[in-house]
Amino acid sequence: MADNWQPGINNSLLRARSELLQSLRSFFQQRQVPEVDVPVLGRSTVTDSNIESIKAVVSGNSAYLQTSPEYFMKRLLAAGSGDIFCLGKAFRDAEIGRRHNPEFTMLEWYRCGWDEHQLMDEVAELISQIANARSEAPLAVTKVSYADSFESVFGIDPQSTELGTLQKMAAELGSESWAEESRANCLDLLFSLKVEAQLPDGLVFIYDYPACQAALAQIHLDAQGRSVSRRFEAFFNRMELANGYRELTDAREQRQRFDKDREQRHADGKPEITVDEKLMTALDAGLPACAGVALGVDRLLMQLQGAESLDQVMPFSWSRS
């Protein structure tokens, strides 16, 4: 006999969840962007050193639950699909907490020919439409560069400041072991603990992430001539909600970044992941210039409803599954 058979979500939130999924779909339907339901189970997965895939076995061969629909969507884009969106499940191992669940609902979409600022505007339109339908005060939307938001809290530039200074700050804020960490990790700690906590209410876009945190985004020069990545994140009431890029389309540079990921995984003692060669061939064939973004739907519902944890907005979070 198990006593926790009941769902974590109450009936009114269960309905709100259903309505949210419908609103998201109708937003794209109105804009004539088709939905694609790409596989959640694939032969390959991401090499990202900070994301762990959940392994599966298919007919005796190893497979992976997808950590996002990104690679399959990019293959569709390379095949000429045009704008597409996907609303489905994504899986990440070892992510369990108030704001994390190993299985979650992700909305991801791509806009061909757009840059990251046009896409940020569309994210703002989507969230505003949904938030304003159920609230009298319009949703506040703010846009600020990573460097400006970092400097407003710490008074220093995140990219030109010496690594030793950042390590010292991170060690003071976190624990001694940060004194040896990379720039990207130190910045993540400082940003997550201090900058995020001071963001205003509503929707906040942080753009032009440091080049060391580019992931799959293009690199360009910002207004001050600093080399930054064309990556943005959206925060809703200080909670990370979405991550987007002006997508990297250069297959050679992409392979270099994947190889760097793999080296990092090796150095960290994490399981080896081979590069998704089908994705690489698709990039060689040509990914159209585009911008893409992935958004956590459960977290969106959590913020819209003022819920305290994902457990309250999911039928069955991991602890109840």
Partner: peptide
């Protein structure tokens, strides 16, 4: 104990 995990960053325990 709370898990903090930036989408593209390393996880940490607060």
């Amino acid at each position: 104990n709370e898990l903090v995990k930036p989408g593209k960053g390393q996880a940490f325990s607060r």
